[in-house]
């Protein structure tokens, strides 16, 4: 007794069907990532309500985090453009390189900013209490999600550079990108706004 396909000879699902399955799976995975992020954000909000938060004057500046946010939004807009031209590899290539630049720029900006906070503003763990824990914890979760989405875009770019059709992986990356952007918005509101 074995599966409905004991010999493994049944044809695989059609590419369209497999793609639809994958897209649905990706949406669920992003929903799970949002739940994880919301749980951490809930913890942060709890600490704010309980007053375990530095006064507004002691919060780190907002300029560089805002630049990082703008990079994410720009990357999302460029990704829409890339999707529009996905069937024309030459046009899509430029858009995708822009997306990758924006995504890499976001991660680099975040890394540099957290480096500055840690080493030059003395916002360290554990000395800075729960605020620093929330700042670095939320940033790590969001950055991990952004890195996964960026890897998806990178794979699509490689496919396009090789001349393959890449509309499907780009379609999958799009909700992920906006998901990570919304996550960053929540992070910004929780950590940087008084």
């Amino acid at each position: 007794m074995s599966t409905n396909d004991p010999t493994g000879t049944l044809p695989s699902a059609s590419p369209q069907r497999a793609e639809a399955n994958l897209w649905f799976g990706m949406v669920l995975a992003h929903a799970a990532a949002v739940m994880l992020f919301c749980a951490v954000a809930f913890a942060a909000d709890f600490y704010r309500m309980r007053g375990f938060w530095p006064p507004a004057s002691a919060l780190p500046g907002r300029f560089i985090p805002s630049v990082a946010g703008v990079l994410l939004v720009t990357g999302g807009a460029l990704l829409h453009g890339a999707l529009r031209y996905a069937s024309r590899p030459r046009s899509a290539r430029a858009w995708l390189l822009g997306v990758l630049g924006a995504g890499a720029g976001f991660l680099a900006t975040q890394a540099a900013w957290l480096h500055v906070l840690w080493w030059y503003r003395d916002l360290r763990i554990p000395d800075s209490g729960v605020f620093a824990s929330v700042l670095y914890g939320l940033s790590a979760v969001q950055a991990a999600h952004a890195a996964v989405v960026l890897t998806g875009v990178l794979r699509a770019t490689v496919r396009i550079l090789r001349g393959s059709e890449a509309r499907a992986p780009l379609r999958r990356a799009l909700p992920g990108w906006w998901c990570t952007t919304v996550m960053y918005g929540v992070l910004f509101a929780v950590v940087y706004l008084p």
Binding site: Y47, F52, P126, D127, G129, V130, S133
Partner: peptide, 18 residues
């Protein structure tokens, strides 16, 4: 990693969590 999410009271450093 030394974070303070759930550490409170005397064991906490710099305010701690809950």
């Amino acid at each position: 990693a030394g974070t303070q999410f759930f550490i409170a009271g005397a064991a906490a450093v710099g305010g701690g969590g809950d």
